[in-house]
Design a protein around this nucleic acid. Structure first.
Length: 987
RNA sequence: GCCCGGGUGGUGAAAUGGUAGACACGAGGGACUUAAAAUCCCUUGGUCCGUAAGGGCUGUGCGGGUUCGAGUCCCGCCCCGGGCACCA
């Protein structure tokens, strides 16, 4: 009987569905294991072969853990709110819920065909009101919380109010209570607090809430019409779509993730995550230790942050960010015009312009002078855009002798440069060494940098001019999106003050709107909804960002249908953290950070019992596509200069395109066409002209080509990989019929045209997508699963190459054939297995068991291949060998395993079979062939009984005539015996 | 610039400091077949010697070091991938 994956897989997928084979219940009697995949955003393009890579890996672990007696939670769902569905809705007018529904059905169909063991009864969708009701609820908890830096945890806002009522709030408190300290400098007494009106109270509280509304500098993306979080902006353009992003000051919902900066940093140490992800998060959080220093200026002062207080005696000026609130105040009247002009031009520049002009120095003097806290010297105050408003205090003390950026600014404007360290050549550049000795005059002179830092901070604190401080690069996360397709923020406004919607009003469902666009006066789409209000009070019109739902979804899987809570305490208590989380590393500073943040927050407020979401994280690599590129020579124009004025003007595209090999393309681009090239071109030109005339009979013009020194139009284009065979040869006829641009395409030279392969991200727009459905139709899901795992280490990115898949398919067929006799009938023998057969079996069990634990799946697949080849040559069809082999293969190739398991006479599913244990006794060999090295080189191969200890091996080796012949009677200096490895004789 | 990874045949890749290249693809050769497909077998890092059986040398980005022995450990470079970045 032939191995027929199509029927076997259909049969078992139906069977699993009917039996609810992977449904899981909370079962406190059994140990749990939680394997989670990052749920997909269901895009319109469907799955390509790269998507299931991580899901296959996690499915193998889930199935393996089940065989080992664990109660495994292995769910799947959809991150179904997001920008693409909304963009599509804007273009087509279709409701995003509808397109999402269609995409989702397609995803499900594709996923089902791969044979995953997901418990679909626990499916979640972030866009489902029964889910986002709890996302909104968590938002309300954030709104209802403040961060107590003393207790180092979030607490209910009512406790803060109680505290204000009792003791008010002092300037000291401003540092204790993690709030928006910069904007909340003043304190108040208990009596003052009580006397505040409702509005003032609420305004004060905004400075402490973990979800708060404030005027903030945000990343505004005009093309997308929304605000973006920092991790959604890369190189000054939006991560999605690549649209320019500007800085804009807006009233904006934010989450106070900065309160958790230190804990997010510390928590990394205990996690079994890859070093690169942890490092990315550490960079993103960006902790730096230093000090704040206050420079008095009149009655006021300028506060700066520095990591190098040891260089204080080298300060020669102060620079404020253009957006700094004190700039207008410190600008002297005579400088006002110039400063205003500078500040305005700085504001109007986009982020990208600003980043592009990093090496341009610009700035302006305010006219004011501050006083140095140690020396009392006058320090000029400048404005410069190399200082960022959002970091530290938005002001720096400039030490040109110790900081290259200050140095360049000083050089440019001719400001004094003071040497701060010994051995520095300050005429050339600043000395940024952190092991130098301080040489500037003052009490720090002669000290090493670290020592001087400590001393300087002590001195600052003594004078009350500053204090030690830790700063983080991490910013609060912009949480509102001026978009339709997201969770509505459950807030209403009374007298312009935000109030939480009562819990009983949740979910606050997305309203129907006529269009998914902003209103005419620039309000978000929700403002279009009729009656978007609560008890007559207007509701918030922005929605939550894409990462809201994914920040807590792992908890919902534990108890997905609970209508009373996001998950019951029992379910949370049982399932706890995710044991294994699998997903892409591109979420390092986005999702994975918010995921940890929300978990810590829910822990603080007592809703869950752990403060990290996932113990172990594995990042699968990206499977890249191999694009096929053709190189085209386009003719620049058709001359219409001919006698007949009525001749048609033929557009550029009417001239046929000529496909050229890559080297000709390069020659043409670099203007080095040979005489031969030009000759070919001349002939082509004539042919092309004829072709154009044939097409436009009335036309008598001539093709006008410009090539070589005069500039050819040469370009490359990705073409659909379907048009190319396995060795890269283009099917020209198919190309002609598939694309109008190439309907008249001609070749530079006769013979097959070989495309130029380029490895890049797999994407629909690059025509390099490989659909898993096609692979499954040809080879079956089991082959796909095995092949994806065999391709290489899970964490590595690699290009997809369908050519290699034959090998894994052959393996499965050979495996199948072991169970089927010569007449193709199923038949296994009940005879006792032989020693070599048992050795193959146990070696495989050992390797596969160890490899799954290490998530090294490519090597376990290789082991299976070795085993099946060896068992094949041993003609082994023994039940005692094949049955454990089937179980071991089941996590990788569940369909064929299930089928063979049934044929072996089992009535229950293979998932219930206990994992076969290997035992060392079967791996012991009778003898071992030792390589004998002399001085680590020349080798002899000798056979010795394996049971011998090192000493006896040594004796036998030396007694061996061949060895003695090599030694020529001399005694060896040393003999090294590594049992089962090698014998090395040092002569 | 700073911080993480990584560099092994034609390709994807294996290798607790112990016979480098397992396994697979591709390629070459052979068997079966009228033929093709499918299947099976052999060879396959480079190089040299030998009619052959077989053997020698060399080889894991480059240069050093530790060691009886280094792809693996240490030092110094080069290159590739990723993260952060006028972050004070």
């Amino acid at each position: 009987m032939q191995y027929d994956p199509t029927n076997i897989e259909r049969k078992w997928q139906d069977e699993w569905r009917k039996r609810h084979a992977y449904r899981v219940e909370n079962d406190p009697a059994r140990p749990k294991y939680y394997v989670l995949d990052m749920f997909p955003y269901p895009s319109g393009a469907g799955l390509h072969v790269g998507h299931p890579l991580g899901y296959i890996a996690s499915d193998i672990v889930a199935r393996y853990k089940r065989h080992n007696g664990f109660n495994v939670l292995h769910p799947m769902g959809y991150d179904s709110f997001g920008l693409p569905a909304e963009q599509y809705a804007i273009q087509t007018g279709q409701h995003p819920a509808k397109t999402t529904e269609i995409n989702l059905a397609r995803y499900r169909e594709q996923l089902d065909r791969i044979g995953f063991s997901f418990d679909w009864s626990r499916e979640v969708r972030t866009s489902d009101p029964s889910f986002y009701r709890w996302t909104q609820w968590i938002f309300l908890q954030l709104f209802d919380s403040w961060y107590d830096a003393t207790a180092d945890k979030a607490r209910p806002i009512s406790e803060l109010i109680a505290r204000f009522e009792q003791q008010g709030c002092t300037g000291q408190d401003a540092n204790v209570l993690t709030g928006d300290v910069e904007r909340f400098v003043g304190g108040f007494s208990a009596a003052e607090w009580t006397a505040f009106d409702e509005r003032t109270k609420q305004m004060v509280l905004q400075h402490f809430r973990l979800a708060y509304l404030s005027d903030a500098w945000v990343n505004w993306c005009p093309a997308l019409g929304t605000v973006l979080a920092n991790d959604e902006v890369k190189d000054g353009v939006s991560e999605r779509g690549g649209h320019p992003v500007e800085r804009k000051r807006m009233k904006q919902w934010s989450l106070r993730i900065t309160a958790y900066a230190q804990r997010l940093l510390d928590g990394l140490d205990g996690l079994d995550w890859s070093e690169s992800i942890k490092e990315a998060q550490r960079n993103w959080i960006g902790r730096s230790e230093g000090a704040t220093v206050r420079f008095p200026i009149g009655e006021d002062f300028i506060e700066v942050f520095t990591t190098r207080p040891d260089t204080l005696f080298g300060v020669s000026f102060i620079t404020l960010a253009p957006e700094h609130v004190l700039v207008p105040k410190f600008t002297t009247p005579d400088r006002k015009a110039e400063v205003d002009a500078y500040v305005n031009s700085a504001k109007n520049r986009s982020e990208r312009e600003r980043q592009a002009e990093v090496d341009k120095v610009s700035g302006v003097f305010t006219g004011s002078y501050a006083r140095h806290p140690f020396t009392g010297a006058e320090v000029p105050v400048w404005v410069g855009d190399y200082v960022l408003a959002g970091y530290g205090t938005g002001a720096v003390m400039a030490v040109p002798g110790g900081d290259q950026r200050d140095w360049r600014f000083a050089k440019h404007f001719g400001l004094p440069i003071i040497a701060v360290t010994e051995g520095a050549d300050i005429d050339k550049e600043a000395d940024e060494r952190k092991d130098a000795t301080i040489c500037s005059e003052g009490f720090l002179k002669g000290m090493k940098v670290p020592q001087a830092i400590t001393r300087a901070i002590q001195e600052l604190e003594k004078l009350g001019a500053g204090e030690g401080r830790i700063n983080f690069r991490l910013r609060d996360a912009a949480f509102g999106r001026q978009r339709y397709w997201g969770e509505p923020i459950p807030i209403y406004y009374q007298d312009g003050i935000p109030y939480p919607l009562p819990e009983r009003e949740l979910p606050l469902k997305l309203p129907e709107v006529d269009k998914f666009l902003p209103t005419e006066d620039g309000e978000p789409p929700l403002a279009r909804a009729a009656n978007w209000s609560y008890n007559g009070h207007p509701l918030e019109t922005t929605t939550m960002p894409g990462w809201a739902g994914s920040s807590w979804y792992f908890l919902r899987y534990m108890d997905p249908h609970n209508a009373e809570r996001f998950a019951s305490p029992e379910a949370i208590q049982y399932w706890q953290q995710v044991d294994l989380y699998v997903g892409g590393s591109e979420h390092a500073t986005g999702h994975l950070l918010y995921f940890r943040f929300w978990t810590k927050f829910l822990f603080d407020r007592g809703w869950i019992t752990f403060d990290e979401p996932a113990k172990k994280l594995v990042n699968q690599g990206m499977i890249q596509g191999v694009s096929q590129v053709i190189h085209c020579l386009g003719f620049s124009m058709i001359s219409t200069t001919c006698a007949d004025d009525n001749s048609p003007t033929i557009p550029l595209r009417a001239a046929p395109v000529v496909l050229v090999p890559k080297d000709v393309r390069n020659r043409a681009v670099h203007y080095a066409l040979t005489d031969d090239d030009l000759e070919v071109l001349g002939t082509l030109e004539k042919t092309v002209t004829d072709a154009v005339r044939a097409k436009f009979p009335g036309h008598r013009g001539r093709l006008f080509s410009e090539v070589g020194e005069r500039g050819a139009i040469v370009y490359s284009r990705n073409i659909d990989i379907q048009l190319v065979d396995g060795s890269g040869v283009l099917n020209v006829a198919l190309l002609k019929s598939s694309n109008k641009e190439f309907e008249d395409v001609m070749l530079w030279e006769n013979g097959p045209y070989v495309c130029d392969p380029v490895v890049e991200k797999m994407s629909k727009s690059k025509f390099n997508v490989v659909n898993p459905d096609d692979i499954i139709a040809k080879y079956g899901a089991d082959t796909l699963r095995l092949y994806e795992m065999f391709l290489g280490p899970l964490e590595q990115s690699k290009p997809w190459d369908t050519n290699g898949i034959e090998g894994t398919f052959r393996f499965l067929r050979k495996f199948w054939n072991l169970f089927h006799g010569a007449g193709d009938a199923f038949g296994v023998s009940d005879d006792a297995p032989t020693k070599p057969e048992l050795k193959v079996l146990h070696a495989t069990l050992k390797k596969v068991t160890e490899d799954i634990e290490k998530m090294s799946f490519n090597t376990s697949v290789a082991q299976f291949m070795i085993a099946v080849n060896e068992l094949g040559s041993l003609k082994c069809n023994k039940r005692a060998v094949l049955e454990p082999m089937v179980i071991a293969l089941a996590p990788f190739a569940p369909h064929i395993a299930e089928e063979l398991w049934e044929k072996l006479g089992h009535s229950s599913s293979i998932t219930t079979a206990p994992w076969p244990q290997w035992s060392a006794e079967h791996l012991v060999e009778d003898s071992f062939s030792y390589p004998i090295s002399f001085n680590g080189k020349t080798r002899l191969q000798l056979e010795f009984p394996i049971a011998l200890d090192a000493k006896s091996v040594e004796e036998q080796v030396l007694a061996n005539p061949e060895v003695q012949a090599r030694l020529e009677g001399k005694a060896p200096k040393k003999v090294i015996v590594v049992p089962k490895r090698i014998v090395n004789i040092v002569v």
